[in-house]
Design a protein around this nucleic acid. Structure first.
Lengths: 196, 196
DNA sequence: GATGGGCTTCCTACCGGAAGGTAGGTATGG
DNA sequence: CCATACCTACCTTCCGGTAGGAAGCCCATC
């Protein structure tokens, strides 16, 4: 939770972009150095090793997500609307290519080859999103505004899986619009409308 | 479609295992050489470059899938049962760790950094699975045995996304059983039972 | 039926470059 | 004065890939 220097932030930001496109083994200190405009060795001053860098990056990524979702919940009460806005957020990020993929979804696919410290952070991220979605499902079920057919936990996992799978398809086809198209029926079903 | 030598097959098989766990940038010729029991340079005799190797591997992967799904359709007619068996096949592969992840799903996540030839094969694989699932949905809709709420195409994409997302979650948690758990409600919904 | 191409398969040895990381120095600013 | 931030220069290891040769095998020719 410590405040890092401006350069550290730039290093993390460029690493995030690079990881989002190629994963852990797909970027190097040299790549970051070129983007940030400093020398390769200088990065080691801020992050002694690649593991340090990515562990910090993923931890921050989770903190940012926690903050973002908290603020979302402060502004919106309806569980269905929360899910729609969550999906819409990703749809926008993918469509404008600002965040074309979830860092942790990409890292999770490479999990067996990740350094254990990084792998642990990735697992923690999944657990966080899952438990947050579970709480949203819980509220929706109690309020009767969400149409659930399984336990809250499973519905949460299924929703998360749809989001990640939709990202993957959008990337595989090179068609950002696929994300929203794939998520539409899921949201439609959760809304309860259109089911005879 | 050519028949390759025994050594070529072993190279492809070990590369497949390595890619399934770490992706394109996560394995090297040295890794394969160690598994197969030949020298690194000998691999270049069978596959001049890494791109050749992986392009061949993915093309074969798609051919194998085509064969497997054809044989599945020869033995089973009911669309719902086909989807259940498809999901069950993956559940088994993940659970016994024989094929813990789809090669093309992993490569798709790294798509922006893949050599174009490999990327094209990965996209082709997605298109193939998608169009196959679409045809299954089509038949299920016509026969009235599948409960669809969107177009066949979108239902197919959504199903594929669920499968890929479920794989990812199973890997992220290190819990193979998550795959089947996440897919259960989707299959349940498609079966039409349990919806009031 | 030996002989010698020619092909396949694998080898040793090597290349240039990129990887992550280290050592040690120099500005700068509180 | 000293910590921070960044530098040049260098290290080892690994990467994908190449050169050139040795062994085995098929098979046509003398």
């Amino acid at each position: 939770m410590s405040t890092l220097s401006k350069t550290s932030d730039e290093i993390l930001a460029s690493a995030r972009v690079l990881i989002m496109s190629s994963g852990y083994n797909g970027f190097s200190y040299a790549d970051i150095a070129e983007v940030v405009g400093i020398r390769k060795a200088s990065i080691h001053h801020h992050f002694p090793s690649k593991v340090d860098l990515v562990r910090t990056l993923v931890a921050r990524y989770r903190e940012d997500a926690q903050e973002g979702l908290s603020s979302l919940e402060r502004n919106v009460q309806d569980p269905l609307e929360i899910l729609q806005l969550y999906a819409g957020h990703w749809a926008k990020c993918i469509e404008d290519a600002s965040r074309p993929f979830c860092v942790c979804a990409l890292l999770a696919s490479e999990l067996p080859s990740l350094p254990p410290e990084v792998a642990a952070e990735v697992t923690a991220f999944f657990r966080f999103i899952s438990s947050w979605l579970t709480s949203v499902m819980e509220r929706g079920a109690k309020a009767g505004t969400l149409n659930l057919t399984s336990t809250r936990e499973i519905e949460a996992e299924a929703f998360m899986a749809s989001v990640h799978g939709a990202m993957l398809s959008a990337r595989a086809y090179g068609r950002p619009d696929v994300f929203a198209a794939v998520l539409a029926p899921t949201l439609h079903r959760l809304s309860g409308t259109g089911i005879q």
